[in-house]
Each structure stands twice: as C-alpha cells, then as structure tokens.
Design a protein around this nucleic acid. Structure first.
Lengths: 129, 129
DNA sequence: GTCACCCCTGAAGTGCGCTCCAGGTCAACC
DNA sequence: GGTTGACCTGGAGCGCACTTCAGGGGTGAC
C-alpha cells in the first residue's frame, strides 16, 4: 500500500487552515468529492484536493460566503455544460470584490488623513516641549 | 425649545445604518457621550454626533472590530494627553488594512485568471457551435 | 502490551455584530 | 378621547464561520 497524499494535519499546515476547518469544509459540501481514506479511515489529501482547497481559500479570503462557494462546488461537481453559470458566479464575485476594494480604499484615505493630523499635532507638541 | 438635530431614524438614514445599530453602538460605548434627548426621552443627533459616527462607520467598514473602535472612543473621551496612543491605534489599523488589501488583490488576480480561462473556453464553444 | 499520539464522529458551543421582540410612553391628529 | 406612529428599554434571537468536546479507535515506539 503506497503512501499517497497528505494527512489532514499536513494538509492543514500546507493550506494555512486547521484540521477542524478541513473536516468542516468537507462535511459542508465545499469539496468536489469526499477525501479518500486509508484503510483505518484516516483522510489522505492528494494534489487535486489541495489544488481545489487553495481555490476555496482564495474565494473565502476575498469574502465569498460559504454558501456561494458550495454553489460553485456544486456546479463544478455537476461536470461539463454549466460553464456559463460558473463564469457568471465568478464574475459577480469579482465585481463585489472590486467594489469592496474601492470602498475600503476610500475609507482608508479618510483614516490616513486623520493619522496625518495626529502626526502633525504630535510633532508640534514635541518641538514646543 | 428649538428643534435641534436629527431623530434616530433621520440619523440612521443619513449614516446608512439602522436605528437599532445606532442604539447598539451607543449602549456598547462606541460613541463619545450619550446622545442628547428631547424632554420625552427621544434621541437627537447633532453634527458632532454624526461626524463621530461617520468615523466609526469608516473604521468598521475597513474591518476594525467593535472592541477596538470602543478603545479608540475611550481614548478620545479621556481627552488630551493620549494622542500618541490614538495615533498608534490608527496606524496599527492602517497597516492591517493595507495588508488585507494586498492579500485580497493578490487572490483576486488568481480568480481573474480563472475567469479568463472560462471566458476562453466559452468563446471556443461558441465558435465551434 | 501499553503508552502516546494522531485521527475519527456527531453534536454542542463560541464570538461577532447586529436584529428583533414585547411591552410601554408620548405627541399629534381626527 | 381614541388611534396612529415614532420612539423608548431590556433582553432574547439570529446567521455566519468556525471551534471545541466527548467518546472512541488504530498504529508505531519502546
């Protein structure tokens, strides 16, 4: 029996997640298929598993809700023929992310301005001290 | 008795929040002082209140946790003498936001790449159809 | 063979940030 | 003076995304 793939702890380490999160994602339908198991029932993550979960973490890290990641996984799992739906889902997400980036950037500008004011005030206090 | 300031509903409308959220922020110590009241106990938001809450929404919209907003409000409420602490809090937040922006942007790049692949695939299907 | 360690499951718990609810007050309008 | 509607309070409830727990294997090192 060849040793193939990563244990859950190794996969978690590789992906920057916890083992608990990996089990949770699997149970919640975010993976394309159940992760394969050793004879004793322990999970083994192969390259495809890891590649897919990297995508999942990217979607999550850009703010896609779990339920949308699951919808995307459902589409991919369904196989060929729904590429347009997948594309639309990703494009909609992209628009959301861009809007979010613009909003955060603009708010950050205002906060930066406030930081500048404090810096000035403190510089002046320093000089007059 | 002059009519001064906005009702909670008006303030909520102006700020893009709900009345419930405004009450919650006040109860949770995010405001600099209790909002003033009419003789019948209804809140009235003046310009200073609104200005402060705009800042709160900016901090929140850039991902600052409620508890940190409260810490910042505590510092401002304490008055002069802690400008350095306020500055440090804002600067730390700024760094977090920049890091977050960079991370999201990078993940978005990978997602864009995937979108490009689907677009190509669909274009080819269209042509061959 | 026993100890330590990693893994398994289903289910309950947690932290965050609101959001909703019940029951009540008040002012204005018909 | 009755009804409407905006507001009040304390407290419960909710959705999300995990995280922890209880109870139970399997396996390799000594």
């Amino acid at each position: 029996m060849p040793v193939v793939g990563l244990t859950i702890a190794e996969a978690a380490e590789t992906l920057g997640l916890t083992s608990d999160t990996l089990r949770y994602y699997e149970k919640d339908g975010l993976l394309l298929r159940p992760v394969s198991r050793t004879s004793s029932g322990h999970r083994r993550y192969d390259e495809d598993d890891v590649r897919w979960i990297v995508l999942v973490t990217r979607l999550r890290a850009t703010g896609m809700p779990i339920r949308d990641v699951r919808r995307y996984a459902d589409l991919v799992r369904a196989g060929d023929g729904n590429e347009l739906q997948r594309l639309e889902l990703l494009q909609a997400h992209r628009e959301q992310v861009l809007q979010q980036l613009a909003e955060v950037t603009s708010h950050l500008g205002a906060i930066d301005h406030k930081i500048g004011i404090y810096e000035d005030r403190l510089r002046r206090l320093e000089i007059s001290a």
